[in-house]
Simulated scan of single mutants.
Amino acid sequence: MDNATDGFLRLPQIIGDRKSGIPPIIPVSKSTWWAGCKSGRFPKPVHLGPKTVAWSRSSIAELVEKLKG
């Protein structure tokens, strides 16, 4: 992940997408990601539209640092 902490990431950019060749930042399944968002383990999404959600780059960067231990 680059050092930019502004902007948003969509779910395929976070958990990866094999079809598009996007490597995962957090290698978990989609259902694990959503369960983690619901439980508070992962950041809550930001609603960009009625059917569009994303996560801030800074919240994902913080999560990566937290998971590194």
Results as ranks from 00 to 15, higher is better:
68 K>P: 03
69 G>M: 08
51 K>L: 04
49 G>V: 15
56 S>N: 11
44 K>F: 02
25 I>T: 11
65 E>G: 02
28 V>L: 04
30 K>C: 06
47 H>I: 03
4 A>G: 05
4 A>D: 05
41 R>V: 13
4 A>F: 13
38 K>Q: 14
8 F>C: 05
46 V>M: 06
7 G>T: 00
20 S>D: 07
28 V>C: 06
56 S>G: 08
26 I>C: 08
37 C>T: 13
16 G>L: 06
8 F>Y: 12
43 P>M: 02
44 K>P: 07
20 S>Q: 15
41 R>C: 13
31 S>D: 10
37 C>N: 02
67 L>P: 10
48 L>D: 09
36 G>K: 11
47 H>W: 10
16 G>D: 12
25 I>A: 03
36 G>S: 08
55 W>H: 00
10 R>V: 14
62 E>G: 04
6 D>A: 11
42 F>L: 14
38 K>M: 11
18 R>K: 06
9 L>E: 07
61 A>P: 15
51 K>A: 14
37 C>L: 00
35 A>C: 02
52 T>C: 10
39 S>V: 01
65 E>M: 04
38 K>I: 04
56 S>D: 00
44 K>T: 01
69 G>R: 10
63 L>Q: 09
51 K>H: 13
1 M>N: 01
6 D>Q: 08
39 S>K: 03
52 T>A: 08
13 Q>A: 11
37 C>A: 06
57 R>Q: 12
50 P>G: 01
19 K>S: 09
55 W>F: 14
29 S>H: 05
3 N>R: 01
30 K>E: 11
37 C>R: 01
36 G>C: 09
34 W>N: 04
52 T>D: 03
48 L>E: 11
28 V>Q: 13
17 D>C: 15
21 G>R: 14
64 V>D: 05
16 G>Y: 04
3 N>F: 12
32 T>D: 09
60 I>R: 01
3 N>S: 10
25 I>N: 05
34 W>L: 06
24 P>K: 10
66 K>M: 07
51 K>F: 07
30 K>D: 12
53 V>H: 04
33 W>P: 15
37 C>Q: 02
12 P>G: 05
68 K>A: 12
59 S>M: 12
